[in-house]
Design a protein around this nucleic acid. Sequence first.
DNA 1: TCAGAAATGCTCAGAGTGAGTATAAGGAGG
DNA 2: CCTCCTTATACTCACTCTGAGCATTTCTGA
Lengths: 323, 323
Amino acid sequence: MSQAPTQEQAVVVDLTAVIVSIAGDQPRVLVRPRAGGDKALEALPSGPLELRHRTLEAGLRSWVTAQTGASLGYVEQLYTFGDQDRTPDHGDGRRVLSIGYLALSRAGAASMPDESVWRDWYRHFPWEDWRRGRPEVLQSLEKPIRRWVAAAKAGTERTARKERASLAFGLDGTAWSDDRVLERYELLYELGIVAEARRKSREAPSAEAKLDGQPMAADHRRILATAIARLRGKIKYRPVVFELMPPTFTFLQLQRAVETLAGVRLHKQNFRRLVAQQGLVEETGAIVAGTGGRPARELRYRQEAILERQAPGLRLRAVRGTE
Amino acid sequence: MSQAPTQEQAVVVDLTAVIVSIAGDQPRVLVRPRAGGDKALEALPSGPLELRHRTLEAGLRSWVTAQTGASLGYVEQLYTFGDQDRTPDHGDGRRVLSIGYLALSRAGAASMPDESVWRDWYRHFPWEDWRRGRPEVLQSLEKPIRRWVAAAKAGTERTARKERASLAFGLDGTAWSDDRVLERYELLYELGIVAEARRKSREAPSAEAKLDGQPMAADHRRILATAIARLRGKIKYRPVVFELMPPTFTFLQLQRAVETLAGVRLHKQNFRRLVAQQGLVEETGAIVAGTGGRPARELRYRQEAILERQAPGLRLRAVRGTE
DNA sequence: TCAGAAATGCTCAGAGTGAGTATAAGGAGG
DNA sequence: CCTCCTTATACTCACTCTGAGCATTTCTGA
């Protein structure tokens, strides 16, 4: 029974990278003009898994280096996508499996051999940037969402939709959660608001078309959403931001980086206290002028912190029994 | 450049499930005797991705239902494994890609059509069970680990190894972290202590062979480690335990369930307080006798809690800027 | 009837966190 | 050179969250 007849699906594996960097106040992702078809749609760098690739991650790194010349530091597997109806059709009956990766790059002006470009990721997700308060798009998105909730006949289904909408978009008193990026995108996809959802059905743009952010090739916007969600979640308990920072920086620069990724504003003094007491950074001794105000102390990341933080006397004693 | 010549790797996709349930004080995982070869080695239920499977998860569910009859509630994709040298060789040059899933089952005596059996997962990871204090295996494991650290020539490499060992196994004052299951397994794999590591090289069991837990077929123990790690992590911030509980239960039963998964003991009163104040459960009104002491109030899970918890006035106001 | 095991209730000291007040120290403009 | 604006830093305060225990209550079994 464990041996299937031979219905086995022929598969092509695509390694897809979401390469993130920060430029000033912009969170950026590396994209390339799409190979065939619609030139307007940009795609994430990706390439097929090949024989010579010993591991999946090695394959990804090799593709990225070849295509963009970007130097990847941190790399993490995100998710494997393989839904039949959300995947580009190869025509030959083979199924496309896309393994998404999140990669962090210290940016710099990496030499990019081809036409790759960095794009502000909020261009694709305008509702995710709360740094200057609640984005106005949300105002308009709320209407179709509520309509969708109301469209279900009262009862379990209605309740379920309501809960889903509230959690994802922070409606009815529920707080906005910065890391529910994927849930939000998926909900908009189901509502047909997102352009990608209307491709298969060749449906005309709905009235809400303008609300949608910039679409991407294939299912890449979904992969990007997954990456942002993961990064926003991770940033809260692992010192990954530093992978995106230059060797030295100031408190404010660090704070801006976090804000840029999380899409929210933070309380300056408390952020400072937090970072300082965790021992994640140390002063280089230098002073940085030209900050627009009083000069700031220059900082650098302290690798050792990771170990120390767990040392006894500091945080976590035993295990917490949450739930 | 984005179109590779045609080095594309032919691939077989395997959907592999780690199905977890709880029986008394045992965390259990569903396994089946391995199809071919070494009958002693057990394997996780799995099956190839087929044409008829619209989505990966659907494919997995269909396999599991067919093979075990178990009713899966919660299902979550874990990770996709594809390292060339840690994957069973198909002989025909095709690469095996394994997509691992974590599934939670309310157990019950599911009708299991074939020879599937539930196994205590600590059988495969004896060093993960701290419920009765530090497991003795660790005493013996510490020696080879320290030897491995010392084997690197002083400097960066030595420091790196030391840090890795400390973090994973809680050495030198670092606290034991229940969810670093995968890091620990991988370290032991590299050290050749784990039997799976010696398969490819046909190496003889090392002196420490007895320290290792029960091996599994192919790379399945690694997938299991990934699942345990994920579950232990998730249990701390999402109410997933309830997927494993019967409809009604007592505080102690719930606590035992969490302890069983996390492999640690918790403070009874504090656990109680935590669960209660989060509003995750409500009393059914019934009283359960025969607990071995004073009768306990019967509880049930409150689905609604998830929404309420985020409501204003309660937790999280804005976003915390950790890092 | 007493000891033991659970179930519950409550208290206390500390660490952690959200907000806000108060100062210090550059730069731009007049 | 003085003033205002902006950023950098220090601290304070009120609460909340958490780890540890102490104290009682209520069954079961010997």
